[in-house]
Amino acid sequence: MNDRSTTAPTRTERLRLAWYLQRLSWALQDYPGRERRAAVLQVQEDTLAAAADVGMATAIDELGHPRALAERYVAQLDRPLPRWTSGAVAATLAAAALLYLGLAYAAGALETLEALGGGSVTTYPLGGEVVLTASDGAFSLESTVSWPGVLLVVAVAGVAFALASRVWRVLP
């Protein structure tokens, strides 16, 4: 052990360790919650102890990249983990895609209305009332929310979430 052994970590060194632990925690975001906190705490305690022996810079460098360290912790679980973050992103994208399709349909209908000389059309997709109006170059869209429509969005987002997160991995 070297002459750093009696040197307490400086404020900068503690900040560097905190930043490393934060990145490790992000990299472990799909790790089971309680075990993630235990892993990060273990790294913190052992790194502080190592820093007393070899200095904080070396102690942190020896840990390697936070993502690589997180992968080693995941490998020690011996089971695949659900990817909750990927699931959330996929669900959001799926719901956004549905919204985009609905708005694209409405925009096309309004342009058609205008090409026909303007007017108003009322449709009832998925049980909700949608009123499209085009007159004198101005467009308007009014709609009500229907349970079938909400269920469709929830179902599509739910399926996307389940597939992207590999939710079946929670099963033993």
Binding site: E35, A38, Q42, D46, E62, L63, L69, R72, Y73, Q76
Partner: peptide, 14 residues
């Protein structure tokens, strides 16, 4: 390195 040993310690303790 510590990055290899710490996860093993964590698992053995768990």
């Amino acid at each position: 390195t510590t990055g290899t040993v710490y996860p093993v310690l964590g698992r053995l303790e768990r």
